[in-house]
Simulated scan of single mutants.
Amino acid sequence: MLSPTGERLLRQLADGRFHSGERLATALGLSRSAIWKQIHKLQTLGLDIQAVSGRGYRLAQPLERLDEEAILTALDPELPRPRIEIHTCLPSTNTYLLHQMAEDGGASVCLAETQTAGKGRLGRRWVSPFGCNIYLSLSWRFADASLSAGLSLAVGVAIVRALSGMGFPQLALKWPNDVLWQGRKLAGVLIEAVSEYQGGCKVVVGVGLNLWLPAKAAQAIDQPWVDAYTILGRIPPRNLTVARLLNHLLPLLIHYERGGLEPWLGEWRRWNCVLGRPVRVVQGKEQFDATAVDVTREGLLRLIDLQGRERLLAAGDVKLRLQGDGHGTADRQR
């Protein structure tokens, strides 16, 4: 967690410029030794703080903190205003919303500067250094619980629409929930649903988007990854990026109950990098090679295996590896 002293120190460093230990100590009313200890604590949150003799300390990149007012200002005025909560640190934004979903309907948004147990598919960890990226969860209720099955594909399309509008080139979608750039993972989606006794369900849409990954944090990622800084040569404003994502995700959820996945499938097929490709499927102890053929209206992946048999895959506990392109990735960080 970020202590009050750590918060004050981070505000001093947020501009990305060098600040001497002596000046920081004077500003915060601490000793230089105490400043060093606070710097170390900030580094444990994933912050890339550089220390240069004779110059002091600085963040490797300026820090833009998440801000509700800035997000709402950039949100499409035609959209209903969601409830937005911003946390300094959470175990997981998805887990938080699963337990905090309001009873009066509408959308709730949870954002965190860092996650200590960021969640991905198959129980894997999403690397979440402080203040660098976007860790966003959005809750909604559906009367028809079956709609959540193919939702991750539509969410992927919404994310690509938002990022393409911000100048991101050459994006692709990998079934069931990855946004790729040149075979490297830029963003991931995690859908979690809880059935209700009336027959509906609570759904939480989790989105992790890499804007800038410090080298030390990136060491924990065991698959090809990419961030916005690598693609664009700059870090997009975080609050604006959140608003752009919500400008596409909120209309999706509002209209999804009526149309389901089918209206999104044509666009998903255009963005996908899976169909027509050889793939390797790992499902529990079973592993087989096949060719990806299509996706169904329910979001299932249709395959033809090496024996010519048709198989249908639900996302579930399945890993999908693209074969033969040099960019094959196991579904690790999600």
Score class of each variant (00 low, 15 high):
I235R: 08
A228F: 04
L122V: 10
L111F: 07
Q333F: 07
L153D: 06
A149T: 15
R121P: 01
S53I: 12
P169A: 14
D305M: 03
K319R: 15
V194C: 01
C201T: 12
L9I: 14
T5F: 00
S3W: 02
D227Y: 09
E113G: 12
Q198S: 14
Q170N: 11
L90F: 07
H99R: 05
L190H: 02
G21Y: 11
I304N: 00
S146E: 15
N272F: 06
D67F: 07
R23H: 15
R238D: 06
F18W: 15
R11I: 14
V52P: 02
L303E: 00
D305C: 01
L66R: 03
L249Y: 07
A51K: 09
P176N: 09
L250M: 12
P62C: 02
L171K: 02
V226Y: 06
F18I: 14
V204A: 08
P236F: 07
L90D: 03
E113S: 09
Y57Q: 03
L2C: 14
I49G: 03
L72C: 07
R334G: 00
W268R: 04
I231A: 04
A193Y: 08
V189F: 08
V155I: 15
A117F: 07
Q100E: 08
Q170Y: 13
Q182Y: 14
N133R: 01
A25K: 06
I159K: 06
L90M: 08
G156R: 04
G284C: 10
L313I: 05
M1H: 07
P82C: 05
E85D: 13
Q61W: 03
L322F: 11
V204K: 02
V179S: 02
A314F: 11
